[in-house]
Design a protein around this nucleic acid. Structure first.
Lengths: 164, 164
DNA sequence: TATTGTTATACTCTATAACTATA
DNA sequence: TATAGTTATAGAGTATAACAATA
């Protein structure tokens, strides 16, 4: 399915309003992607002043919420390939946000933690993210937002076999 | 934000269940992406036998639902860059699914249409897509599905200024 | 001047295979 | 033998600049 609309929107004076979406208008997949791109676009803009990508924010948040996680732990929790995570971590470590600590128990693994600077940046990002979420809640309503989270969780569970 | 889980899921015996998501658990953006990847993964698999990508399906559906659309029309409707659409069209045309027709009114533009083969493939894909949607509806309930479409539309409208 | 379709190009994200060091 | 981290690489998807033909 095509990316249905970028975050950086065009003027609404274009001809796209006259185009019939056909079956796509009632497609969960299409509308999900459309919404996801719009929401991510907003978050991307919001985090830009901190020079943080959404993916980096999520990694910081996960490390902060879990002591003693290994790289592989984070990868399986977030659905990142281990191989790709190396580069990501390298960049964040070079910026002084995260630290690898060699485990004494198993010398193959690295345990990850935030640096003081990492905690500082995460605190800022957390506020930015909260403001972003508040904006979304204002858009759809707080009650609907909470209902939406539940529906999304059900859909995400599609991969783990039959429905909840 | 990291891709929270791929369509091709791991065994649920891994350690990811023990990882606290922190603020991400309540993040619309994160859960939206998680759901979107799961749903797209299902659609991707479903369309694979037809050798159709979701983006190609959406292009076929749009062309079918709108006579006389130009390449630029489709691009602005689906949020594709004109430059990238050229390759996409080239592939579909090489497969005999779509046809460019030079417009007599404006010799700069091409009008797009489906070939008989394109209509045949779209018909199959439409059935596959309908079965996919039915699976989702069974997962979250038909009433909830319809409510979800509304919420997603509100979020997608974020880009067009203040909320609906 | 502006727009359509096009080429070329680059950057990000994602996926896989293979290596090393440990277990 | 299996696993963690790593390297290298390849493929999508997406973004921009520039050009020829046409308006």
């Amino acid at each position: 399915m095509a990316p249905p609309g970028t975050a950086r929107a065009k003027k609404s004076t274009d001809r796209s309003a006259r185009v019939a979406l056909g079956v796509l208008g009632e497609s969960i997949g299409y509308q999900l992607r459309r919404a996801q791109l719009a929401v991510f676009g907003d978050l991307l803009e919001s985090l830009a002043p901190l020079e943080l990508r959404p993916a980096q924010f999520s990694v910081l948040a996960i490390i902060d919420a879990n002591p003693e996680l290994t790289q592989s732990d984070i990868c399986s929790a977030l659905g990142i390939q281990r191989a790709n995570f190396v580069t990501m971590l390298h960049d964040m470590q070079a910026r002084g946000l995260t630290k690898r600590r060699a485990s004494a128990l198993d010398r193959r693994v690295n345990t990850l933690e935030l640096t003081p600077e990492g905690r500082r940046v995460l605190a800022c990002a957390g506020e930015v993210h909260a403001a972003h979420e508040a904006r979304l809640a204002r858009c759809i309503g707080a009650a609907e937002r909470s209902r939406l989270l539940g529906l999304l969780a059900s859909l995400a569970a599609l991969t783990d076999g039959p429905c909840t």
